[in-house]
Amino acid sequence: MGVQPQPLRVLLIGNGGREHAIAWKLSQSPLVESIIAVPGNGGTATCSKTTNNTSVSAEDFPALLDLARKNNINFVVPGPEAPLVAGAVDFFEDAGIRCFGPSKAAAYMEGSKTFSKDFMKKHKIPTAAYENFSDYEKARQYLDTVQHDVVIKASGLAAGKGVIIPATKEEAHDALKGIMQNKEFGSAGDEVVIEEFLTGDELSILTFSDGYTIKSLPPAQDHKRIGEGDTGLNTGGMGCYAPTNIATPELVAQIDRDIIQPTIDGMRKDEIPFKGVLFTGLMITSSGPKVLEYNDHARLFEGPSR
């Protein structure tokens, strides 16, 4: 007889729709004995095997570790990007508890858009033309020199909202000033990316990886801008659908071959191997698919930004 796998007692960090989906699916696994969602929500509370715990903060790693040890937790799943960028995986694995998700170094791919854009340039991954700035005056001057339409992105985490798609040069200058000088997105706007505005259909792809191999889920299309007719400010995402007609088998194979596998290979070569679920936001342009941004873990509800 083979050795029976140890039942999983899971600590699930987060309170969003994604955590409900994760709890719902984990509850169906015969390998999972119990789940504690911190803080959880009304959805996670309805999942079998799952209980919510609001006695500790999802941001307080030492308190979470204490809770985990008291409940014999042997597997941690951080849902949101913030704990991943803050090093949740490193913290719990250093304490001897297995974790699903990227390390702090790998999660920086989402934590800094300037870092991810430079990574794409280094590894020849198709993306929009861009420049990074931490100096407002230099960014302002650059904006005056470009002839193409632009997108202005706060480099740090801004809950999916730190992206401005200006319709005019005046709006672009207003956005730049709001992000860098008025700190509308706080420290997330200490650096900005000014990049070429791409047109086409957006696709979002979630890919499982062990740091070497990849397995992508069916691509989805999502709704980002707040107004009717794809107008107004970007949001963190207001719903998505899959499958989508534009994601032909040939296109999916091209994306895996030319974008996602080179991304995983590049991160490993740069000694920041990615393990977990990588979200790749893409624009399918007339010259082929190009990366808009990467996100960590299962950001089903917080998709790409043009």
Score class of each variant (00 low, 15 high):
residue 262 P to F: 09
residue 293 E to A: 06
residue 261 Q to P: 12
residue 268 R to C: 03
residue 293 E to D: 05
residue 286 S to W: 03
residue 294 Y to E: 03
residue 268 R to L: 03
residue 268 R to W: 01
residue 271 E to L: 12
residue 292 L to W: 04
residue 288 G to N: 05
residue 301 F to W: 09
residue 275 K to T: 10
residue 263 T to Q: 11
residue 279 F to Y: 14
residue 284 I to D: 01
residue 303 G to V: 00
residue 290 K to A: 08
residue 287 S to Y: 12
residue 281 G to S: 09
residue 258 D to I: 02
residue 264 I to N: 00
residue 305 S to A: 13
residue 286 S to G: 15
residue 270 D to A: 15
residue 266 G to T: 00
residue 297 H to G: 06
residue 271 E to Q: 15
residue 304 P to Q: 07
residue 293 E to V: 05
residue 262 P to M: 06
residue 295 N to P: 00
residue 291 V to I: 03
residue 296 D to R: 02
residue 286 S to M: 07
residue 276 G to T: 05
residue 301 F to N: 13
residue 298 A to M: 13
residue 298 A to L: 15
residue 305 S to P: 05
residue 277 V to R: 11
residue 275 K to L: 03
residue 275 K to D: 01
residue 304 P to M: 08
residue 267 M to T: 10
residue 278 L to A: 06
residue 288 G to C: 04
residue 287 S to K: 15
residue 297 H to V: 05
residue 277 V to W: 07
residue 285 T to M: 06
residue 303 G to I: 06
residue 296 D to M: 14
residue 263 T to N: 14
residue 280 T to I: 04
residue 260 I to S: 08
residue 301 F to S: 13
residue 290 K to D: 05
residue 272 I to N: 11
residue 267 M to N: 06
residue 284 I to V: 15
residue 272 I to E: 01
residue 266 G to F: 00
residue 261 Q to Y: 04
residue 264 I to G: 01
residue 303 G to Q: 08
residue 270 D to I: 10
residue 288 G to K: 01
residue 267 M to F: 07
residue 287 S to T: 14
residue 281 G to V: 08
residue 288 G to V: 05
residue 293 E to R: 07
residue 284 I to P: 02
residue 302 E to N: 14
residue 259 I to P: 00
residue 292 L to F: 07
residue 305 S to D: 04
residue 273 P to A: 02
residue 273 P to G: 00
residue 274 F to H: 13
residue 289 P to I: 07
residue 283 M to G: 05
residue 294 Y to N: 08
residue 295 N to R: 11
residue 265 D to M: 09
residue 266 G to V: 03
residue 266 G to R: 02
residue 283 M to V: 06
residue 264 I to Q: 03
residue 290 K to F: 06
residue 259 I to R: 01
residue 304 P to F: 13
residue 304 P to Y: 08
residue 301 F to R: 04
residue 302 E to L: 14
residue 289 P to L: 02
residue 282 L to W: 10
residue 297 H to W: 09
residue 258 D to N: 11
residue 270 D to Q: 14
residue 268 R to N: 05
residue 296 D to C: 15
residue 293 E to M: 04
residue 260 I to K: 09
residue 305 S to C: 12
residue 294 Y to F: 15
residue 258 D to H: 08
residue 260 I to M: 08
residue 260 I to T: 07
residue 262 P to A: 10
residue 295 N to S: 11
residue 302 E to T: 15
residue 305 S to L: 14
residue 302 E to K: 12
residue 272 I to M: 11
residue 293 E to G: 04
residue 281 G to N: 06
residue 263 T to E: 09
residue 278 L to Q: 03
residue 259 I to L: 05
residue 273 P to D: 00
residue 299 R to W: 10
residue 265 D to R: 13
residue 273 P to L: 00
residue 269 K to M: 07
residue 273 P to F: 08
residue 294 Y to C: 08
residue 305 S to W: 10
residue 282 L to V: 09
residue 305 S to H: 13
residue 300 L to M: 09
residue 300 L to A: 00
residue 301 F to P: 02
residue 270 D to Y: 13
residue 271 E to R: 14
residue 272 I to A: 11
residue 290 K to P: 12
residue 304 P to E: 04
residue 279 F to A: 03
residue 271 E to D: 15
residue 279 F to C: 06
residue 295 N to W: 01
residue 280 T to Q: 10
residue 277 V to I: 15
residue 305 S to K: 15
residue 288 G to S: 01
residue 292 L to R: 05
residue 260 I to F: 12
residue 278 L to W: 09
residue 293 E to L: 11
residue 262 P to I: 11
residue 284 I to A: 04
residue 282 L to Y: 09
residue 291 V to P: 01
residue 262 P to L: 11
residue 303 G to E: 03
residue 285 T to R: 10
